[in-house]
């Protein structure tokens, strides 16, 4: 088992390969921004973290996010490091529920596409069709389920497709080329390239694997490719954006929220990231 290196030969990629229907709201927005020559910024906010979390989401949108990932807290988040674990427990302890967060987003008028990120048990317990329907009814564009790999994703993706909800799949540094192709075929919205072997969290240095996986994903698909996990600072985001279409930044933002930054502090961080990656 090792990090898979890029192959020399670029894969032939066709837009919309392996899917039917037109792209959803998230993918449409990201493609449009990319076409404008812009790098994509998708911040992550834990839903239900603090009474003002919806204000945080709006502030992050106003500060220049192209889309926003909203975490639906789960009791056992195995893909998350200490920061998002802490945020999830705090949200749950204050009474937040995945259903409540999805419902609250219905009225939110955020102005950019929202993707909810949660763990598969939340979906399995709710039921595929019901979860997809509730997400769609709230105007949420997409869902990200990091413990649902492509081999097991069929029943959910079918229900999500039917409800018009995009399912963002993840590709990891250990993913071999044949799996990467399968992941690209079923992913909607964008392709989430996991930047390193590890859980979410801030890192001092950008992992070399971030650029490798970004390059492999760009070869494999025309979907927007965003790198997340271990992308914390403006410099790291800029370095990744030299190869990828954009970045997901989670723990760096959530840590500030845990420290009490509030909507204003969150907005400032996102504005800094925005201007950093726009400088190129």
């Amino acid at each position: 088992m090792s990090v898979v290196q890029p192959t020399a030969v670029a894969a032939t990629v066709q837009v919309g390969e392996g899917r039917s229907g037109s792209p959803g709201a998230l993918e449409t927005r990201l493609r449009q921004r990319r076409a404008e020559g812009r790098k994509l910024l998708v911040p992550y906010v834990t839903g239900g973290l603090g009474g003002d979390w919806l204000d945080v989401v709006r502030a992050v949108a106003a500060a220049g996010a192209d889309a926003i990932e909203v975490g639906l807290p789960f009791s056992d988040p195995v893909m998350d490091g200490p920061t998002i674990q802490e945020a999830s427990s705090r949200a749950l302890e204050s009474g937040a529920t995945p259903q409540g967060i999805v419902a609250a987003l219905r009225e939110a008028e955020v102005g950019v596409p929202i993707a909810v990120m949660t763990y598969y048990n939340v979906v399995a317990r709710t039921g595929h069709r019901r979860m997809a329907t509730e997400i769609a009814r709230s105007g949420i564009a997409a869902a990200i389920l990091p413990d649902l790999p492509v081999d097991e994703a069929g029943p959910w993706v079918d229900a999500a497709d039917a409800a018009g909800v995009e399912t963002v799949l993840l590709a990891a540094p250990t993913t071999p080329d044949d799996r990467l192709a399968a992941i690209c075929r079923r992913s909607r919205g964008f392709l989430y390239a996991v930047g390193l072997l590890g859980v979410t969290g801030e890192r001092h240095e950008l992992a070399a694997s971030s650029l490798l996986i970004a390059a492999r994903c760009k070869q494999a698909t025309d979907l927007p490719v965003l790198v997340g996990v271990g992308v914390s600072t403006t410099d790291q985001a800029r370095a990744v954006c030299a190869v990828a279409d954009g970045v997901v930044v989670g723990s760096a933002l959530v840590r500030r929220l845990l420290d009490g930054a509030g909507p204003q502090g969150a907005g400032e961080l996102v504005a800094d990231l925005r201007s950093g990656i726009d400088r190129g």
């Binding site: 088992m1 990091p146 799949l169 590709a171 990891a172 250990t174 993913t175 996991v194």
Partner: peptide, 23 residues
């Protein structure tokens, strides 16, 4: 190969771990 016992079992892990489980 899917690791199913009737309706149960399977392999629901982050993508990073799937190749290791297959190996």
């Amino acid at each position: 190969p899917g690791g199913r016992f009737g309706d149960y079992g399977g392999r629901y892990v982050p993508e990073s771990l799937v190749p290791a489980c297959i190996e």
